[in-house]
């Protein structure tokens, strides 16, 4: 187990390092942050001063070495735009995104699993067909469109929910959370639903396919023949066995929800990390881009690790050390 974890850690370090090099070269290739940030009426002298102030006057490899040296001490640099430590900037925005991602993922599981189970157990009923047809919509409608429609219907036409932004927050453990206030929940509802829509469909389809496959297995037939109640057959024998793909996909989806919920965040003016990263890319705020992607890489590695650990709980045949 510990060997396994160690190997995973070394892998993670390598990926992070490679990623930071790619971002450095990438940002350098796209353009010059000073051209974008500086006031257009700044003269040549002022431009040179800004280039020097941001450390961009040195050769790229030198800039990278400086970055590595500071990173080793836990300093990922200061944002060109905000003049605040990049890491701090991202961590400030993280709770908003985490809260949204959790709400969307839990929503997807709570809604998707029962519906998928139903569709799998009664594949020919009208309800199942409706669910499956609905899930196609969930897959195919683009998020930005659905988001705008949600706003138009629930905020503009009906006036039931606030259109944008994050609601009132409560400070718990030094961070601000909005899901603990009623106003916060109201603000959370639409963006979370918008993010969840795709995931709900995904979970429905995975669950349904799993159930239909498992129902034909010998052990299920045997359990039935033994006279076990349909409830026990479904929730103990079938359910546990269909969870592995669901867990894998939900885990990965959770990661990408945190990292890339850009569209939903900008439509709902949700002050999360997604909005920060897209703004940072637009102005080539390299310290923030690098720090952000490093965090994302670490996060994906952690999530994968958790998913792997969950496999071994769900299915004793899976061994972590096995190669």
């Amino acid at each position: 187990m510990s060997v396994y974890l160690l190997r995973r850690l070394i892998q993670a370090g390598g990926v992070v390092l490679a990623m930071s090099i790619i971002v450095f070269i990438g940002v350098f290739a796209i353009g010059d942050p000073v051209e974008i940030l500086i006031s257009p009426d700044a003269d040549q002298m002022e431009r040179e001063r800004a280039v020097a102030a941001l450390g961009l006057d040195k050769p790229l490899w030198h800039q990278y070495l400086i970055f590595l040296g500071k990173a080793a001490q836990g300093d990922l640099g200061r944002s060109f735009v905000f003049n605040e430590p990049a890491l701090e900037l991202i961590l400030q925005r993280m709770p908003a995104t985490l809260e949204l991602a959790f709400a969307a993922t839990f929503g997807a599981i709570l809604i998707g699993l029962p519906l998928g189970l139903y569709a799998g157990l009664r594949p020919n009923s009208v309800g199942s067909k409706a669910i499956m047809a609905g899930s196609i919509l969930g897959f195919s409608l683009p998020t930005f469109w659905v988001g705008l429609m949600l706003i138009m219907v629930f905020a503009v036409q009906l006036g039931w929910l606030p259109s944008t932004g994050r609601g009132d927050t409560v400070e718990v453990l030094g961070t601000r959370w909005s899901f603990l206030t009623w106003n916060g929940l109201q603000h959370l509802a639409m963006p979370a639903l918008n993010l969840a829509l795709f995931k709900i469909s995904l979970v429905i389809r995975l669950t349904r396919a799993g159930v239909r496959e498992t129902m034909l297995m010998d052990y299920v037939k045997f359990a039935r023949a033994k006279g076990l109640s349909p409830f026990r057959v479904t929730f103990v024998h079938v359910f546990k066995n269909i969870l592995i793909p669901v867990v894998t996909v939900t885990g990965l989806e959770f990661g990408s929800t945190i990292a890339f919920s850009v569209v939903t965040e900008s439509i709902f003016a949700w002050p999360g990390m997604g909005k920060l990263i897209i703004d940072s890319i637009n102005v080539l705020d390299r310290p923030v881009i690098v720090a952000y992607l490093m965090i994302v890489v670490l996060m994906f590695i952690t999530i994968n690790l958790i998913v792997d650990l969950m496999y071994s709980v769900l299915d004793p045949r899976v061994r972590l050390e096995s190669k």
Binding site: I151, A155, V156, T164, I267, F268, A269
Partner: peptide, 15 residues
């Protein structure tokens, strides 16, 4: 509120 469509929608909804 950086998204153009959302900004208008928020005005329409009274937020």
């Amino acid at each position: 509120v950086t998204n153009n469509a959302t900004r208008t929608a928020s005005l329409l909804s009274g937020d």
